[in-house]
């Protein structure tokens, strides 16, 4: 028993395995770069989604770009009507290469909801 404890006490895990793991991880990342033909693209981070949503809304012709913030409501704050909202949501779909079902797209009425929906969507790119 004492012998076993002594052996276990002096055993050390070799450091080499760590570097091997690191190399394996790196090659995995390199592989991901080469997988552009797959149907799964990389996920976006939230700040990028916010920036792109705001830039799409700002470039909408009827919108005053100075008023656009990430929290803005299309109809209450920007003075758009419901059909303009439909057009903005369609522009967002094209920007992020998404296909939002009609009923869900109908619920998106503000920048905040759009950012939330797109950031949580696995296929947005």
């Amino acid at each position: 028993m004492a012998l076993r404890a002594a052996i276990l006490g002096h055993l050390r895990v070799p450091v080499q395995t760590l570097t091997q793991n690191g190399r394996a991880l790196q090659s995995w990342n390199l592989l991901n770069l080469n997988r552009s033909m797959s149907s799964h693209d990389d996920h976006l981070d939230k700040q990028e989604v916010i920036d792109r949503v705001v830039s799409v809304v700002k470039s909408f012709p009827k919108v005053d770009p100075a008023k656009v913030t990430p929290e803005v409501h299309f109809q209450n704050d920007l003075g758009l009507d419901s059909l303009d909202t439909v057009e903005i949501v369609m522009a967002l779909e094209e920007e992020f290469k998404l296909e939002i079902p009609d009923k869900e797209a109908d619920k998106i009425d503000s920048c905040k909801l759009a950012v939330e929906y797109i950031a949580n969507h696995p296929m947005s790119s």
Partner: peptide, 18 residues
Amino acid sequence: VPWAPGGSKFTRNPAPPT
């Protein structure tokens, strides 16, 4: 849209890693 059902990338899976 390519990933959606009926799209050109639908159920197209990446090759397994080496």
